[in-house]
């Protein structure tokens, strides 16, 4: 806008560009979106939250990395991990909670988990199948505790209920919707 300049991450134009890239990979699990040119050095996980959060949403930050300013700009309510619509966590910390899974009637209430990992390409390869994938896809996240996959399988066992994951390293992210089957 003309009177004051917002930092790039909080500009509407940035949110539009972020959303298109996130949507692109959400529709094609296994593909990775590079957000580097939109971030100005901020983490990709924060960019995912900036795209979706506002004062109608709730967030549980399990990492403690979000500053007061980040929270103010996200303009998002804080909630406990079992009630939050969005959860920010790190991949190395195994989950010890049950997020919102939605109900059969309202599966869209299942939480969106944004998990920060070391890298999306340098770990052991996982094989993905499901909607959005032509045959199979692979994803090799590094710094994602195996317990996450066990927990996610449990959370997503009763489709359409479940959670949707956003895995993010420093500048890139990928989406694993609840429909994706993960094999070793």
């Amino acid at each position: 806008m003309s009177v004051l300049d917002l930092p790039r991450l909080w500009r509407p134009a940035t949110h539009q560009a972020l959303f298109r890239r996130i949507l692109d990979v959400a529709a094609r699990p296994g593909q990775i979106a590079d957000l580097g040119d939109l971030l100005d050095g901020r983490p990709a996980a924060l960019a995912a939250l900036a795209t979706f959060c506002d004062n109608t949403q709730t967030l549980a930050d399990l990492t403690g990395t979000l500053s007061a300013t980040d929270f103010a700009f996200l303009d998002v309510g804080k909630a406990t991990v079992d009630k939050a619509g969005f959860i920010l966590s790190v991949g190395t910390a195994a989950p010890d909670f049950t997020p919102r899974l939605g109900t059969l009637d309202t599966p869209e209430d299942g939480a969106t988990l944004v998990i920060m990992v070391d890298s999306l390409t340098e770990g052991a390869a996982l094989t993905l199948t499901g909607p959005g994938i032509n045959g199979t896809a692979t994803l090799a996240p590094k710094g994602l505790a195996p317990d996450w996959l066990t927990a996610r399988a449990r959370w997503c066992a009763d489709f359409p209920m479940g959670v949707d994951l956003v895995l993010a390293d420093a500048t890139r992210l990928t989406v694993i919707p609840r429909t994706t089957k993960i094999g070793a």
Partner: peptide
Amino acid sequence: IRDRAQVDLLAPPR
């Protein structure tokens, strides 16, 4: 005033 001072947004303008 904006031009001679520093202005920081504390929340996104809505």
